[in-house]
Computed example of a mutant assay.
Amino acid sequence: MTIIPKFQEITLPMLKLASDGQVWSLADAREELAKHFQLTEEELEELLPSGRQARFANRVAWAKVYLERGGILSSSKRAHFQITERGREVLQDPPEEISIKFLSQYPEFQEFRSRSSKISEGGSDDETTDTPEETLESGYLTIRKNLAAEVLERVKSCSPRFFEHLVVDLLLKMGYGRAGGGSGERVGQSGDEGIDGIISEDRLGLEMVYLQAKRWEGTVGRPEIQKFVGALHGKRARKGVFITTGTFSADAASYVQTIDPKVALVDGKQLADYMIDFGLGVSLARAYEVKRIDTDYFEE
Results as ranks from 00 to 15, higher is better:
Leu136Met: 12
Glu137Met: 13
Ala61Cys: 07
Leu48Asn: 08
Cys158Met: 05
Lys156Phe: 06
Arg113Met: 14
Leu166Gln: 01
Ser157Asn: 01
Leu67Met: 12
Glu121Arg: 10
Glu45Val: 02
Leu147Trp: 14
Val155Leu: 03
Ser114Cys: 09
Val60Ser: 02
Val151Thr: 03
Ser114Trp: 06
Leu141Met: 13
Asp126Ala: 02
Tyr176Thr: 00
Lys118Leu: 14
Arg154Cys: 05
Asp126Asn: 03
Phe102Val: 08
Ala57Trp: 05
Tyr106Thr: 12
Ala61Thr: 14
Trp62Tyr: 15
Ser138Tyr: 11
Ser104Trp: 09
Gly51Gln: 07
Leu73Ser: 11
Leu136His: 07
Gly139Met: 11
Thr128Asn: 12
Pro160Cys: 05
Ile119Leu: 11
Ser124Val: 10
Phe112Cys: 08
Arg52Gln: 15
Glu121Trp: 10
Ile143Val: 08
Leu48Thr: 04
Glu134Leu: 10
Ser75Lys: 13
Leu47Lys: 04
Leu136Arg: 12
Val167Pro: 01
Ser104Cys: 11
Phe102Gln: 00
Leu171Arg: 00
Ser159Glu: 00
Arg52Ala: 11
Ser159Asp: 03
Ser104Val: 07
Lys156Pro: 01
Phe56Leu: 12
Ile143Lys: 05
Pro107Ala: 01
Pro94Phe: 15
Asp126Cys: 00
Arg86Thr: 08
Asp125Ile: 10
Arg115Asn: 09
Gly71Phe: 10
Asp126Ser: 05
Asp93Ala: 11
Gly51Glu: 03
Leu152Tyr: 03
Glu134Phe: 04
Arg55Ile: 13
Tyr140Thr: 00
Phe109Pro: 06
Phe162Glu: 09
Met174Ser: 02
Ser159Ala: 06
Gly70His: 05
Ser157His: 02
Arg69His: 15
Leu166Asn: 02
Phe102Ser: 02
Ser74Asp: 13
Lys77Pro: 04
Asp93His: 14
Phe163Glu: 03
Val167Ala: 00
Gly71Lys: 07
Glu96Gly: 08
Phe102Ala: 06
Ala57Cys: 07
Thr129Cys: 06
Glu164Arg: 00
Thr131Gly: 06
Leu67Glu: 06
Leu166His: 00
Thr128Phe: 02
Glu85Phe: 10
Glu133Val: 13
Leu152Phe: 02
Ser138His: 11
Glu68Lys: 04
Gly123Asn: 06
Thr142Gln: 13
Ala149Arg: 05
Glu153Phe: 01
Ser116Pro: 10
Ser116Ile: 12
Ala148Ser: 03
Glu89Phe: 11
Leu166Val: 03
Gly51Cys: 04
Gln92Thr: 08
Gly87Asp: 09
Gln105Tyr: 00
Lys145His: 05
Phe81Ala: 13
Lys118Ile: 14
Gly175Ile: 07
Lys156Arg: 10
Glu108Thr: 15
Pro132His: 07
Ile143Met: 11
Trp62Pro: 15
Leu103Ser: 10
Glu97Phe: 08
Gln105Gly: 04
Ser75Cys: 08
Glu133Trp: 14
Glu153His: 05
Lys145Met: 04
Gly175Lys: 01
Glu89Thr: 02
Arg161Ile: 09
Lys118Asn: 10
Val167His: 01
Ala63Asp: 07
Arg86Asp: 08
Trp62Glu: 15
Lys101Tyr: 04
Lys77Asp: 15
Leu147Val: 06
Val65Tyr: 07
Asp130Gly: 08
Arg52Glu: 13
Phe56Met: 12
Glu89Ser: 13
Arg78Met: 13
Phe81Ile: 14
Glu133Thr: 14
His165Pro: 01
Ser159Gly: 02
Pro132Tyr: 13
Gly123Met: 09
Lys101Trp: 01
